Deep mutational scan, measured.
Amino acid sequence: MSIQHFRVALIPFFAAFCLPVFAHPETLVKVKDAEDQLGARVGYIELDLNSGKILESFRPEERFPMMSTFKVLLCGAVLSRVDAGQEQLGRRIHYSQNDLVEYSPVTEKHLTDGMTVRELCSAAITMSDNTAANLLLTTIGGPKELTAFLHNMGDHVTRLDRWEPELNEAIPNDERDTTMPAAMATTLRKLLTGELLTLASRQQLIDWMEADKVAGPLLRSALPAGWFIADKSGAGERGSRGIIAALGPDGKPSRIVVIYTTGSQATMDERNRQIAEIGASLIKHW
């Protein structure tokens, strides 16, 4: 067993022997301040990774656009098919120029040779490549099948209805392509620590998230040296922004954090800054 596999296998073990965790309302004060600064709703939840206990939450059962955070769930569904012998990570998928959609920095470079399922998941999570996500959605049967996968996990809230990039439209009061912070946090925890996926697939999923290259201005910008984070960000229309993450000190994750916002007129930089400040408060009061 590799060191990384050992780390993920012992996530519940280490967490069980940690000192009790206590909620700190100071972080919620910052979440509410972010709402004021952005002029928009902000949803927040913080779960203990081992027990699933909610440590703090704000608007945990209000719907927010998922945006690209759905790509972690998508690759979880792909990995479940791999575990069941219905898919192979090494299978190569070929596609054409007509398949390319807006923001496809990886797939646009491989029109000639195609990409493997493993490479597509890596591109979808680490670079948020939209064509990679659409190609992977095709392998599982489309958005409705991802929703069905989530329902089978016990998540009857999260739903995907459309493809990239239309799913980022974020129309107010439109339930399409949305989740709730509580539902997303619980589902992410199941994917990373539950028995739904094999140990190898859980490790692969967290490795992809740990290698995320496009979430630097968010929670990662607030992390002290030595902290662990595996995350996936999302951005959408109407001032929408979000991030889902597993993080913790001492090089291992111990909490799940989900943050979503929508309806702001603020710039992307300002949305990023507010999420980073929430992260800084979380870490300060850990």
Score class of each variant (00 low, 15 high):
residue 160 L to M: 03
residue 39 G to S: 07
residue 262 T to M: 02
residue 257 V to A: 14
residue 138 T to E: 04
residue 93 I to A: 01
residue 68 S to D: 14
residue 255 R to K: 12
residue 99 D to W: 09
residue 239 G to W: 03
residue 41 R to C: 07
residue 223 L to K: 13
residue 160 L to E: 14
residue 36 D to C: 05
residue 269 D to Q: 15
residue 274 Q to S: 11
residue 163 W to L: 14
residue 194 G to F: 02
residue 175 E to V: 04
residue 232 K to E: 13
residue 50 N to A: 09
residue 37 Q to I: 06
residue 63 R to S: 06
residue 214 V to T: 15
residue 175 E to M: 03
residue 111 L to V: 13
residue 233 S to F: 13
residue 57 S to Y: 08
residue 201 S to Y: 02
residue 185 A to N: 11
residue 282 L to Q: 12
residue 261 T to A: 04
residue 93 I to C: 00
residue 26 E to M: 13
residue 87 E to Q: 06
residue 152 N to T: 09
residue 78 V to T: 01
residue 76 G to H: 05
residue 87 E to M: 10
residue 65 P to A: 04
residue 119 E to M: 06
residue 192 L to C: 10
residue 154 G to E: 09
residue 124 A to G: 03
residue 236 G to C: 00
residue 230 A to S: 09
residue 282 L to G: 11
residue 31 V to A: 09
residue 72 V to C: 03
residue 45 I to W: 10
residue 33 D to L: 14
residue 111 L to S: 06
residue 254 S to L: 07
residue 25 P to K: 06
residue 35 E to S: 05
residue 218 L to Y: 14
residue 182 A to G: 08
residue 181 P to F: 00
residue 51 S to Q: 07
residue 275 I to G: 10
residue 116 T to C: 01
residue 68 S to P: 08
residue 126 T to I: 14
residue 24 H to A: 11
residue 228 F to V: 15
residue 63 R to I: 02
residue 210 E to I: 11
residue 84 A to E: 11
residue 165 P to S: 01
residue 278 I to P: 11
residue 272 N to W: 08
residue 70 F to H: 15
residue 235 A to M: 14
residue 185 A to L: 12
residue 164 E to C: 15
residue 143 P to W: 05
residue 98 N to I: 07
residue 142 G to P: 01
residue 61 E to M: 02
residue 272 N to I: 06
residue 129 D to E: 02
residue 73 L to W: 03
residue 105 P to N: 04
residue 245 A to V: 11
residue 199 L to I: 12
residue 198 T to C: 06
residue 171 I to N: 00
residue 120 L to I: 05
residue 74 L to Y: 02
residue 89 L to S: 04
residue 149 F to S: 05
residue 250 D to C: 12
residue 80 S to A: 13
residue 187 T to F: 00
residue 143 P to N: 05
residue 200 A to W: 03
residue 180 M to A: 12
residue 226 G to I: 07
residue 105 P to F: 05
residue 49 L to Y: 01
residue 142 G to M: 04
residue 259 I to A: 12
residue 72 V to L: 07
residue 134 N to W: 03
residue 197 L to H: 02
residue 117 V to P: 06
residue 82 V to F: 05
residue 213 K to G: 10
residue 240 S to F: 14
residue 156 H to Y: 04
residue 277 E to M: 10
residue 68 S to T: 09
residue 122 S to R: 09
residue 214 V to D: 15
residue 232 K to H: 13
residue 203 Q to A: 05
residue 260 Y to H: 12
residue 177 D to A: 12
residue 249 P to R: 07
residue 227 W to L: 05
residue 103 Y to Q: 12
residue 133 A to L: 09
residue 198 T to H: 05
residue 278 I to E: 08
residue 199 L to V: 06
residue 45 I to Y: 12
residue 217 P to A: 01
residue 239 G to N: 00
residue 125 I to F: 08
residue 139 T to V: 03
residue 199 L to F: 15
residue 42 V to W: 14
residue 199 L to P: 08
residue 252 K to L: 06
residue 239 G to R: 06
residue 240 S to P: 09
residue 237 E to V: 00
residue 232 K to Y: 12
residue 121 C to S: 00
residue 253 P to W: 04
residue 77 A to C: 06
residue 48 D to S: 06
residue 210 E to N: 13
residue 232 K to W: 10
residue 111 L to N: 11
residue 46 E to P: 06
residue 234 G to S: 14
residue 226 G to Y: 04
residue 112 T to A: 04
residue 50 N to W: 07
residue 212 D to I: 00
residue 146 L to F: 12
residue 256 I to P: 10
residue 154 G to H: 02
residue 72 V to E: 00
residue 92 R to L: 13
residue 183 A to Q: 06
residue 56 E to Y: 04
residue 234 G to F: 14
residue 248 G to A: 06
residue 211 A to I: 07
residue 268 M to Q: 14
residue 58 F to E: 03
residue 193 T to A: 09
residue 174 D to R: 07
residue 260 Y to P: 07
